[in-house]
Nucleic acid binder design. Structure first.
Length: 497
DNA sequence: CATCCACAGGAACTTGGGGGCA
DNA sequence: TGCCCCCAAGTTCCTGTGGATG
């Protein structure tokens, strides 16, 4: 469902990053428009490099996950309990971005669900990405709505069965058919159908907001408990949830089992952060961490394997020169063994080669891809920043442009205030601005270190960690910041003081 | 060695906008 | 309509602090 397009285990990456590829492609038609035909012919005639680009996209879930057999088997051994109708232990999965946590977990849960259908054991897996759904209310609401949907399907299924049963009864004698079922008369069957229909009417969709949380919880609880089954709740990026809204959600989920009548709940938590359990209530911690599985980063050799696997499908044969895959693997291995990054790199390199109408992808394309990915990321992050953060960033850039290095909070705040007045924006307090600076730091746009300068106080030393001109251009393209004429006077004023 | 700067950053609170419900 | 809830962003008030300086 909608999960697949939000499955990123990585940093915020709100949209697909292809948006600016289109921009570049538009530029292509400036040069060669002598003929009205030929625009696309040229592009088509070049031997295409890709055979099937889809398998390189982050959203693609492979059928095979090299070098993850051990972890997958461990998950499977824990989860078979569900197929025996028992409650599986809760699982905590650790691993950095791009180590295949989500892919493996999704793979296992797909297998689990399909096996459970074959053996006719009621078992369901629900996936929630806590980076998107990051409050207790939203998690519960989303789960409640999913289970309500499930229940409606379940009821429809039951009603169908029962109606078929009634038909059988009409054809044969009730005494021959009914004894094999739980019913002793056709009336009882009809009653049950009416009951089910009434139940279905009672299900109430949980609204996005408005209800008290405990009401959402009880709707969710009833929905889960409606019929017998084992429910596995998969919480991706669980550390984000704990960070933002505490461990109440996890506490509620983990104590559910003791109150459920018909069903059993088991939780799979997926985390980037090894230490996030430190903030948990000890009870939650012990119940959640019954089983722990660690996904170590891939090393360069493993990455090479993975890339090779996919490249065989993704590219035409001979489309890659020999050093492309090792190089992609090496770059990604430097980024804590991030397979997603490696695949991104390979795909982007291929796209660049395609655009150059090159015969094959070579080392230079990979290096260009490396730069492009980083720049795209920065552009996207900066572009989608809230106005206030943009102003703060702009203040930092202005200082940097005027040769001020090791900028401190006070300086940023002063420039920021002037910028706000200039474009008639609300001026935030310094307290808030320090938070905004910290956020920029976490996004990797600036680098902020707290230093003590003795008598001259304690402050953050801030420096820009992205290309200055490109970033400035992105900021100025914002409709509100576009009005700023020249920053010199502001910064100059600083020196006058 | 104490002092004291210039903030960092935690906690509680407010504001305003999403909504439900009787 | 008035009262309830949830949430993000922001404010107010506050205590804490590393180390050059007097």
């Amino acid at each position: 469902m909608s999960d697949d397009d939000t499955d990123s285990t990585a940093e915020p990456r709100r949209e697909d990053r292809d948006f600016d590829v289109d921009l570049d492609e538009v530029v292509l038609d400036e040069g060669d428009d002598e003929e009205s035909t030929g625009l696309f012919d040229d592009l088509l005639s070049g031997e295409p490099i890709f055979e099937n680009k889809e398998v390189l996209r982050p959203s693609y879930t492979p059928h095979e996950l090299p070098h993850r057999k051990e972890q997958i088997n461990k998950m499977a051994t824990i989860l078979v309990a569900a197929l025996r109708g028992e409650t599986p232990s809760n699982i905590l999965i650790y691993g950095k971005t791009g180590t295949g946590k989500t892919a493996s977990a999704k793979f296992v849960s797909q297998e689990l669900e399909s096996t459970s259908q074959r053996y006719d054991v009621p078992c369901e897996v629900e996936y929630i990405n806590c980076e998107v759904t990051d409050t207790q209310y939203r998690v519960l609401a989303q789960l409640a709505n999913k289970f309500i949907e499930e229940n409606e399907q379940y009821i429809d299924g039951r009603i169908e069965e029962l109606e078929a049963l009634l038909e059988d009864v009409e054809e044969q004698r009730p005494s021959e058919v009914l004894p094999e079922t739980e019913f002793d008369s056709t009336d009882a069957v009809e009653e049950r159908i009416a009951q089910l229909e009434a139940d279905r009417e009672e299900f109430e969709e949980v609204p996005m907001t408005g209800w008290p949380t405990d009401r959402v919880y009880s709707v969710f609880f009833d929905a889960v408990d409606y019929h017998e089954r084992v429910v596995v709740i998969m919480l991706d990026e669980i550390d984000k949830l704990v960070e933002k809204s505490g461990d109440d959600t996890l506490y509620n989920l983990s104590r559910m089992n003791s109150e459920l009548q018909n069903s059993r709940v088991s939780i799979i938590g997926i985390s980037n952060d090894l230490k996030f359990t430190d903030f948990l209530d000890p009870r939650v911690k012990s119940s959640l961490g019954e089983e722990e599985i660690v996904f170590p980063p891939y090393d360069a050799n493993q990455l090479r394997d993975i890339l090779q696997h996919r490249a065989d499908v993704a590219f035409k044969s001979e489309a890659l020169t020999d050093d492309v895959i090792p190089l992609c693997a090496a770059f990604a291995a430097q980024e804590h063994g991030d397979a997603r990054r490696a695949l991104d790199l390979l795909r982007t390199a291929g796209e660049l080669a395609e655009r150059d109408q090159a015969e094959s992808v070579d080392e230079a394309h990979v290096r260009k891809a490396q730069d492009k990915i980083e720049l795209d990321r920065v552009v996207e992050v900066v572009r989608t920043l809230p106005t206030q953060s943009k102003l703060v960033l702009f203040a930092i850039i202005s200082l940097e442009k005027n040769g001020v290095h090791n900028i401190n909070t006070g300086e940023v705040y002063n420039i920021y205030k002037r910028l706000c007045e200039e474009i008639d924006a609300d001026v935030l307090t310094q307290r808030r601005v320090t938070d905004l600076i910290s956020e920029l730091d976490m996004l990797g746009i600036v680098n902020a270190v707290v230093v003590s300068k003795g008598r001259y106080g304690r402050t953050k030393e801030i420096s820009l960690s992205v290309p200055i001109d490109e970033t400035e251009a992105v900021l100025l393209s914002d409709s509100r910041l576009g009005d700023i004429d020249d920053v010199q006077p502001f910064v100059q004023a600083r020196f006058d003081n």
